[in-house]
Computed example of a mutant assay.
Amino acid sequence: MKFILAGAVTLLVILIVVSNTVEPGNPSAAKRSSAADDGSLKIGVLDSAPVYYNQGGSAKGFDYEMALGVTKSLGIKPSFVPMDFADLFKALDEGEIDMIASQVSVTEEREEAYDFSHPYFVTYLSFTTPKSSPIKKLKDINGSRVAIVDGTAQESILKNRFPKAEIVKRKNEKAALEAVAAGKADSFFYDAPFTDGLIKHAPVPMEERIVFPSDKAPIAFVFRKGDRLRDQSNAAIDEMIVDGTWLRIKTDYFREYPLSELFREQGVE
């Protein structure tokens, strides 16, 4: 009986050790050494032009096409997951998506928590106001109420550049524009590439009043910390810049935007 009990205890210990050391056959996205270990990639995108939208039954978008170019270069099958901007980072944290491609600006705070690819664009910022607004120049922003989408880099930009502005946070673009229309904010501060599409659906007549570029706020793809796909994506982005693919996509969506010095330094003309 003693030998039987001893053998059973030994077997139990072995089973416990094995169960704690052997990786499960299908690890979650959050635990994979790379987001694309299984040859597929779930890409979180803001469901709004110019990031990702539907036109004539086909998907379109600047960030969409840039992400497609990267996955094609790496031989990875992409699937796009549209959502509000405020939900993207939580979805990445929880493994619901593997990468964010949504005009995300690189900030020091974000770099502490995530890995970023090489830049594939820079931030062009704008203040959108009702057509009757007295706001006309950047000096008019301090002391005014500014609506932003919660979770965007606009909050830190406002705090640093316009410390006297009152920040009005909303979950998405629609809610931010509604705050301006209802008189709860004086302007909507957001990325300029989105403005034309948003104005068309604004609850009151609005216009893009102030636009300015920010080379210090590059746009990049976002990955979980340590994902080796980041380095592979960097090589793909660099190749797209050198072979002219990046400039073609940029021209298709942002022809009127002057070329940033960030890309001129890489030989783009």
Rank of each mutant, 00 (worst) to 15 (best):
K171A: 13
K171I: 11
A202H: 06
K171D: 11
F89T: 08
A220W: 07
D227K: 08
G75D: 06
A113G: 03
N234I: 04
A91F: 07
A8G: 15
F3I: 14
T128E: 02
A236T: 03
E256A: 14
P119I: 07
T245I: 05
P134E: 05
A220T: 09
L92N: 07
E265N: 15
F85H: 04
G151V: 09
G143Y: 03
I249K: 08
P24T: 15
Y124Q: 10
E111P: 07
T195L: 00
G143N: 01
L262G: 07
E108D: 13
L68G: 02
L15I: 15
G95R: 05
I141E: 02
E239I: 02
A220R: 06
L138F: 08
K169I: 05
F121W: 08
G25V: 13
K2V: 11
G151E: 04
A236D: 05
L259W: 10
T107Y: 08
I199Y: 04
D87K: 15
D186T: 03
P119E: 07
T245A: 14
M83P: 09
I241F: 11
E166H: 01
G39Y: 04
R248T: 12
R230C: 01
L68H: 04
P203C: 10
F162D: 00
A8C: 13
P258G: 13
T71I: 04
P163G: 08
A182M: 12
S40R: 12
F85Y: 13
G57W: 02
E207I: 10
G143L: 07
R228Q: 11
N234L: 09
G183L: 00
Y253K: 10
S102P: 08
S40K: 12
K184W: 00
L12I: 14
P203F: 01
E261Q: 15
E109P: 01
D150I: 04
D87N: 12
